[in-house]
Amino acid sequence: MSLSDTNRAVTLITGASGGIGSALAHALAGTHELILAGRGGERLAAVCAATGGHPLVLDLTRPETFADALAGLGRVTNVVHNAGVLELGAVAEQDHAVWTHMLAVNTVAPAELTRLLLPLVRQERGTFVFVNSGAGLSANAGWGSYAASKFALKALADALRGEEASNGVRVTSVYPGRTATEMQRKVRGQEGAEYTPQAFIDPQTLAQTIAFVLNAPRDTALTDLTVRPGPQP
Protein backbone atom coordinates (compact mmCIF):
# COMPACT_ATOMS: atom_id res chain seq x y z
CA MET A 1 0.00 0.00 0.00
CA SER A 2 1.64 3.24 -1.13
CA LEU A 3 0.05 6.62 -0.58
CA SER A 4 3.10 8.69 -1.45
CA ASP A 5 1.39 10.19 -4.50
CA THR A 6 -1.11 12.29 -2.51
CA ASN A 7 -0.60 15.72 -0.98
CA ARG A 8 -3.22 15.15 1.68
CA ALA A 9 -2.41 14.06 5.20
CA VAL A 10 -2.31 10.29 5.58
CA THR A 11 -3.98 9.26 8.81
CA LEU A 12 -3.85 5.77 10.29
CA ILE A 13 -6.64 4.87 12.71
CA THR A 14 -6.66 1.72 14.83
CA GLY A 15 -9.95 0.22 15.94
CA ALA A 16 -11.44 1.73 12.80
CA SER A 17 -14.48 -0.53 12.67
CA GLY A 18 -15.62 0.43 16.19
CA GLY A 19 -17.89 3.30 17.16
CA ILE A 20 -15.30 6.04 17.64
CA GLY A 21 -12.94 4.82 14.91
CA SER A 22 -15.70 4.55 12.33
CA ALA A 23 -17.05 7.99 13.24
CA LEU A 24 -13.55 9.47 12.91
CA ALA A 25 -13.03 7.83 9.52
CA HIS A 26 -16.26 9.42 8.29
CA ALA A 27 -15.28 12.79 9.78
CA LEU A 28 -11.93 12.78 7.95
CA ALA A 29 -13.11 11.22 4.67
CA GLY A 30 -12.38 13.43 1.69
CA THR A 31 -9.80 15.57 3.48
CA HIS A 32 -7.36 12.90 4.71
CA GLU A 33 -6.10 9.74 3.06
CA LEU A 34 -7.15 7.01 5.49
CA ILE A 35 -5.48 3.80 6.57
CA LEU A 36 -8.07 1.95 8.62
CA ALA A 37 -6.70 -0.74 10.89
CA GLY A 38 -8.75 -3.51 12.44
CA ARG A 39 -9.14 -7.24 12.67
CA GLY A 40 -10.64 -7.47 9.20
CA GLY A 41 -14.06 -8.79 8.32
CA GLU A 42 -17.24 -7.18 7.02
CA ARG A 43 -17.32 -4.23 9.42
CA LEU A 44 -13.86 -3.00 8.47
CA ALA A 45 -14.61 -3.56 4.78
CA ALA A 46 -17.83 -1.54 5.10
CA VAL A 47 -16.09 1.42 6.75
CA CYS A 48 -13.39 1.39 4.08
CA ALA A 49 -15.99 1.29 1.32
CA ALA A 50 -17.94 4.18 2.84
CA THR A 51 -14.91 6.43 3.46
CA GLY A 52 -12.48 5.46 0.72
CA GLY A 53 -10.09 4.15 3.36
CA HIS A 54 -7.40 1.54 2.82
CA PRO A 55 -7.79 -1.54 5.06
CA LEU A 56 -4.93 -2.65 7.29
CA VAL A 57 -5.48 -5.94 9.09
CA LEU A 58 -3.74 -6.01 12.47
CA ASP A 59 -3.90 -8.42 15.38
CA LEU A 60 -3.01 -6.18 18.31
CA THR A 61 -2.18 -9.18 20.48
CA ARG A 62 0.69 -10.10 18.13
CA PRO A 63 3.11 -7.16 17.95
CA GLU A 64 5.70 -9.38 16.27
CA THR A 65 3.52 -9.23 13.13
CA PHE A 66 3.30 -5.43 12.95
CA ALA A 67 6.50 -4.79 11.00
CA ASP A 68 5.43 -6.98 8.10
CA ALA A 69 1.90 -5.53 8.10
CA LEU A 70 3.25 -1.96 7.92
CA ALA A 71 6.02 -2.65 5.42
CA GLY A 72 4.12 -1.39 2.38
CA LEU A 73 3.17 2.02 3.75
CA GLY A 74 4.63 4.90 1.78
CA ARG A 75 3.56 7.82 3.99
CA VAL A 76 1.95 8.26 7.38
CA THR A 77 1.25 11.75 8.71
CA ASN A 78 -0.92 11.00 11.72
CA VAL A 79 -1.58 7.99 13.92
CA VAL A 80 -4.71 7.72 16.05
CA HIS A 81 -4.38 4.99 18.66
CA ASN A 82 -8.06 4.29 19.18
CA ALA A 83 -8.36 0.50 19.58
CA GLY A 84 -8.82 -0.90 23.05
CA VAL A 85 -10.37 -3.61 25.20
CA LEU A 86 -12.10 -3.40 28.55
CA GLU A 87 -13.12 -5.98 31.14
CA LEU A 88 -14.39 -4.84 34.52
CA GLY A 89 -13.52 -6.75 37.66
CA ALA A 90 -12.06 -6.45 41.12
CA VAL A 91 -8.36 -6.96 41.68
CA ALA A 92 -9.26 -10.00 43.79
CA GLU A 93 -11.10 -11.55 40.83
CA GLN A 94 -9.02 -10.86 37.71
CA ASP A 95 -6.10 -13.21 37.10
CA HIS A 96 -2.87 -12.53 35.22
CA ALA A 97 -4.39 -13.49 31.86
CA VAL A 98 -6.86 -10.60 32.06
CA TRP A 99 -4.16 -8.13 33.04
CA THR A 100 -1.78 -9.38 30.36
CA HIS A 101 -4.41 -9.12 27.63
CA MET A 102 -5.51 -5.64 28.72
CA LEU A 103 -1.96 -4.31 28.82
CA ALA A 104 -1.04 -6.03 25.54
CA VAL A 105 -3.83 -4.42 23.53
CA ASN A 106 -4.15 -1.08 25.32
CA THR A 107 -0.48 -0.30 25.97
CA VAL A 108 2.06 -2.62 24.34
CA ALA A 109 0.44 -2.55 20.89
CA PRO A 110 0.34 1.27 20.72
CA ALA A 111 3.95 1.42 21.92
CA GLU A 112 5.16 -0.97 19.21
CA LEU A 113 3.08 0.67 16.47
CA THR A 114 4.45 4.04 17.53
CA ARG A 115 8.03 2.77 17.40
CA LEU A 116 7.57 1.36 13.91
CA LEU A 117 5.65 4.33 12.49
CA LEU A 118 7.71 7.07 14.10
CA PRO A 119 10.20 7.48 11.22
CA LEU A 120 7.33 8.12 8.78
CA VAL A 121 5.53 10.53 11.12
CA ARG A 122 8.77 12.43 11.75
CA GLN A 123 9.16 12.97 8.00
CA GLU A 124 5.68 14.52 7.92
CA ARG A 125 6.03 16.45 11.20
CA GLY A 126 2.77 14.75 12.05
CA THR A 127 0.67 13.95 15.07
CA PHE A 128 0.04 11.01 17.36
CA VAL A 129 -3.33 10.94 19.12
CA PHE A 130 -3.79 8.53 21.99
CA VAL A 131 -7.47 7.95 22.70
CA ASN A 132 -7.21 7.35 26.41
CA SER A 133 -10.07 7.41 28.95
CA GLY A 134 -11.20 9.13 32.09
CA ALA A 135 -9.92 5.91 33.69
CA GLY A 136 -6.45 6.98 32.59
CA LEU A 137 -6.65 9.83 35.09
CA SER A 138 -8.51 8.23 38.00
CA ALA A 139 -8.99 4.56 38.90
CA ASN A 140 -12.27 3.47 40.48
CA ALA A 141 -13.18 0.19 42.13
CA GLY A 142 -13.64 -2.55 39.55
CA TRP A 143 -11.61 -0.70 36.93
CA GLY A 144 -8.09 -1.62 38.09
CA SER A 145 -6.73 -3.52 35.10
CA TYR A 146 -8.24 -1.19 32.52
CA ALA A 147 -7.16 1.94 34.39
CA ALA A 148 -3.65 0.55 34.79
CA SER A 149 -3.38 0.06 31.03
CA LYS A 150 -4.63 3.60 30.43
CA PHE A 151 -2.35 5.16 33.06
CA ALA A 152 0.50 3.42 31.22
CA LEU A 153 -0.80 4.78 27.90
CA LYS A 154 -0.64 8.30 29.37
CA ALA A 155 2.97 7.66 30.39
CA LEU A 156 3.78 6.50 26.86
CA ALA A 157 2.25 9.63 25.35
CA ASP A 158 3.92 11.98 27.83
CA ALA A 159 7.36 10.45 27.24
CA LEU A 160 6.90 10.48 23.46
CA ARG A 161 5.87 14.15 23.54
CA GLY A 162 9.05 15.12 25.34
CA GLU A 163 11.24 12.99 23.11
CA GLU A 164 9.81 14.08 19.76
CA ALA A 165 9.11 17.79 20.22
CA SER A 166 12.43 18.70 18.60
CA ASN A 167 11.42 16.62 15.57
CA GLY A 168 8.20 18.59 15.10
CA VAL A 169 5.98 15.66 16.12
CA ARG A 170 2.88 16.58 18.12
CA VAL A 171 1.39 14.20 20.70
CA THR A 172 -2.08 14.52 22.16
CA SER A 173 -3.87 12.41 24.75
CA VAL A 174 -7.67 12.56 24.60
CA TYR A 175 -9.57 11.48 27.71
CA PRO A 176 -13.19 10.80 26.76
CA GLY A 177 -15.91 10.27 29.29
CA ARG A 178 -18.56 7.65 28.62
CA THR A 179 -19.28 7.47 24.91
CA ALA A 180 -22.25 5.81 23.21
CA THR A 181 -20.50 2.78 21.70
CA GLU A 182 -20.87 -0.98 21.84
CA MET A 183 -18.06 -1.05 24.39
CA GLN A 184 -20.14 1.21 26.61
CA ARG A 185 -23.12 -1.09 26.15
CA LYS A 186 -20.94 -3.95 27.41
CA VAL A 187 -19.72 -1.88 30.36
CA ARG A 188 -23.24 -0.97 31.41
CA GLY A 189 -24.18 -4.64 31.24
CA GLN A 190 -21.26 -5.56 33.49
CA GLU A 191 -22.32 -2.82 35.88
CA GLY A 192 -25.88 -4.14 35.88
CA ALA A 193 -27.16 -0.80 34.61
CA GLU A 194 -29.30 0.31 31.69
CA TYR A 195 -27.56 1.48 28.51
CA THR A 196 -28.99 4.87 27.54
CA PRO A 197 -27.00 6.24 24.57
CA GLN A 198 -28.45 9.74 24.86
CA ALA A 199 -26.80 10.13 28.27
CA PHE A 200 -23.34 9.68 26.80
CA ILE A 201 -21.08 11.44 24.29
CA ASP A 202 -22.05 10.87 20.67
CA PRO A 203 -19.13 9.16 18.84
CA GLN A 204 -19.49 11.71 16.05
CA THR A 205 -18.91 14.54 18.54
CA LEU A 206 -15.76 12.87 19.81
CA ALA A 207 -14.65 12.27 16.22
CA GLN A 208 -15.01 15.98 15.45
CA THR A 209 -12.91 16.76 18.52
CA ILE A 210 -10.12 14.44 17.36
CA ALA A 211 -10.35 15.87 13.85
CA PHE A 212 -9.84 19.34 15.33
CA VAL A 213 -6.67 18.09 17.06
CA LEU A 214 -5.31 16.65 13.82
CA ASN A 215 -6.13 19.76 11.80
CA ALA A 216 -5.02 22.32 14.39
CA PRO A 217 -2.61 24.99 13.08
CA ARG A 218 1.07 24.23 13.53
CA ASP A 219 1.57 27.07 16.00
CA THR A 220 -0.32 25.17 18.68
CA ALA A 221 0.06 21.87 20.49
CA LEU A 222 -2.93 20.33 22.22
CA THR A 223 -1.28 18.06 24.76
CA ASP A 224 -4.16 16.78 26.91
CA LEU A 225 -7.85 17.07 26.13
CA THR A 226 -10.59 15.90 28.50
CA VAL A 227 -14.05 15.40 26.96
CA ARG A 228 -17.10 14.79 29.15
CA PRO A 229 -20.80 14.28 28.42
CA GLY A 230 -22.67 17.58 28.42
CA PRO A 231 -25.53 18.49 30.78
CA GLN A 232 -28.72 16.57 30.17
CA PRO A 233 -31.85 18.53 29.15
Results as ranks from 00 to 15, higher is better:
Gly40Cys: 02
Tyr175Lys: 05
Ala104Lys: 08
Leu44Tyr: 03
Gln94Glu: 08
Gly18Trp: 07
Ala29Arg: 04
Pro110Ile: 14
Ser2Glu: 09
Glu112His: 10
Ser2Gly: 13
Gly40Lys: 03
Tyr195Val: 05
Glu33Met: 04
Arg75Gly: 07
Asp202Ser: 11
Arg188Lys: 12
Arg185Cys: 06
Gly230Cys: 15
Thr220Gly: 14
Ser173Ile: 07
Thr51His: 03
Asp224Tyr: 13
Thr196Leu: 13
Gln123Gly: 15
Ile201Pro: 00
Leu156Asn: 04
Gln208Ala: 15
Ala71Pro: 05
Gln184Trp: 01
Gln204Val: 08
Ala109Gly: 13
Ala211Asn: 01
Ala49Phe: 02
Leu137Cys: 10
Leu3Asn: 00
Ala135Thr: 12
Asn140Gln: 15
Arg185His: 12
Arg122Met: 15
Asp5Thr: 08
Gly142Cys: 06
Tyr146Thr: 11
Arg43Asp: 11
Gln232Val: 04
Pro119Asp: 09
Ala104Ile: 06
Val121Glu: 09
Glu163Val: 08
Val187Pro: 00
Asn106Lys: 06
Ser17Thr: 04
Ala29Pro: 11
Thr107Pro: 07
Gly136Trp: 07
Leu24Asp: 03
Leu12Glu: 05
Arg228Ala: 15
Lys186Arg: 13
Ser149Arg: 01
Ser173Asn: 11
Thr107Phe: 08
Glu182Ala: 12
Val121Lys: 03
Val108Glu: 04
Arg161Cys: 14
Gly168Asp: 11
Gly41Met: 03
Gly177Cys: 01
Trp99Met: 01
Ile201Met: 14
Gly168His: 09
Leu44Pro: 00
Ala104Pro: 02
Glu194Ser: 11
Pro176Ala: 12
Phe200Lys: 06
Tyr195Arg: 09
Pro176Lys: 07
Gln190Thr: 00
Ala159Met: 10
Glu194Asp: 11
Gln184Tyr: 01
Val85Ala: 05
Val121Thr: 13
Val91Met: 12
Ala45Asn: 04
Val187Cys: 00
Val76Trp: 00
Thr172Ala: 14
Ala9Asn: 10
Lys150Trp: 09
Asp59Pro: 08
Asp68Ile: 00
Glu93Pro: 00
His54Phe: 04
Thr205Glu: 15
Ser166Lys: 15
Leu58Thr: 02
Ala165Leu: 14
Gly30Leu: 07
Leu86Ser: 06
